Structures are given as C-alpha cells and as structure tokens.
Amino acid sequence: MARSFSSQDEAEEEGNVDLTPMLDVVFIMLIFFIVTATFVKETGVEVNRPQANTADQKNNPSVLIAIREDNSIWVDQRRIDIRSVRANIERLHAENPEGGVVIQADELASVKTFTEVLDQAREVVPPEKVSLATENGG
C-alpha cells in the first residue's frame, strides 16, 4: 500500500533548510582566524617615547621592553631587575626566534639604564634586530 503525502507534508519538506553545513563552515572560518591572528604584545606600562623623524614600524617583535622615567624595567607586564633582563629576553625570544627586540624607553629615562638593557639584548639577538621605539615627529 502506497503512502500518500498531502500537499502540506510536501511543502514542509521543501521548506526545511539544513543549517549544519553552514555552521560547519562558520566554525572552520572561526578556527582559521583564531589560529592566524597576530596578537599585539604590550609592555604593560605607558611610556612617553622621544620623537624622531626617522621613526620606523617594526614587524612583530618577540620581545618588548619598557623603561619608565624612574628607570624601572618592564617586560610582559612585570617589573624586572636589570640583572634579569637577559634571561627574560632569552625566554621570550625562544618563543619567536624570527622576531626582534624593541626597547621603549621614556624620554626621561637614564641613558645608562637604556645602554645596559641594549647591551643585554644584543647578547641574545643580532644587533640589527634590536631597536628603540620612538614617536614619529614628522
């Protein structure tokens, strides 16, 4: 015995939309964007950087170091001692060996502190990958 469908049953079946493939695509795109996203690294403190006409944008540094006006040194939102700068740079640089080191020194910070941090950074990464962050004055 053949089962007969009413026109209402046929209309319901034609009107149903399967959303599963669309949800699969959305989740795959979400995973793709999360994996490929570049996260902005912050030092955790605000620094008044000096201005320079030759300021340049560096791509994705692996280590950001901030030197505040009171000569305190900050890495990864933590205050560190001058003696532990090299160890912190080594640890963070190991996570991204292609990246460089950017030092954000306050314009009122001591040149002596900046030089010590710069020397320790150059012991870990090549000198051309170590730079000073400045404000673009042009």
Rank of each mutant, 00 (worst) to 15 (best):
V17W: 01
D24N: 14
A94Y: 12
Q104S: 15
T134V: 12
A52W: 02
L30F: 06
K112L: 04
F32E: 10
S72H: 01
S84Q: 10
V124L: 09
G44R: 01
F33L: 13
Q120V: 03
E42S: 07
N88K: 12
S62R: 08
F114C: 04
D70Y: 00
V25Q: 13
P126M: 07
A94F: 11
E12M: 11
V130Y: 11
R122Y: 04
E95K: 14
I82R: 08
P50I: 07
P97Y: 07
N60H: 07
D24A: 13
D18H: 04
T134L: 00
S4V: 14
S72C: 02
D119A: 13
G138K: 14
E95W: 07
T134I: 00
I34L: 09
A2Q: 08
K41S: 09
V45R: 00
S110P: 02
P127C: 06
I80S: 07
V17I: 13
E14K: 07
F39C: 07
T36Q: 06
I73S: 00
V63W: 03
T38S: 08
L108T: 03
V17H: 09
R3S: 12
V85R: 00
V35R: 07
R83A: 12
N16T: 14
N60P: 03
N88S: 14
E128A: 14
T113V: 05
E10A: 04
D81R: 08
V101H: 00
E12A: 08
D9Q: 15
A37W: 06
V101T: 05
R79Q: 15
P21F: 03
E12F: 09
A52S: 14
A2L: 06
T20M: 14
F5Y: 12
L64T: 01
T38Q: 05
V111F: 01
E135T: 15
V111A: 12
V117N: 03
N71Q: 04
E12Y: 09
S110Q: 01
A2R: 13
P126Q: 11
E116V: 02
K41D: 13
V63Y: 03
P50W: 00
A66N: 03
R83S: 15
G99K: 01
N71P: 04
R83F: 11
V45K: 03
A121P: 05
D106E: 02
N96P: 05
E69G: 15
N96R: 12
P127E: 10
R68N: 13
R91K: 15
N53C: 06
A87S: 15
D76Y: 05
T38D: 08
T134A: 05
M1S: 15
R3V: 14
Q77R: 15
K58W: 11
I28W: 02
L92D: 09
M22W: 03
R91C: 11
D119V: 13
G137E: 10
F5C: 06
D56P: 01
G99V: 10
I28E: 15
M1N: 12
F27N: 11
G100E: 03
A105L: 01
M29L: 12
V130T: 08
A121M: 03
G44P: 04
V124P: 10
E13V: 05
A121C: 08
Q8M: 13
N59I: 08
D9E: 15
D56C: 13
A121Q: 05
R83H: 12
P97W: 02
G100L: 02
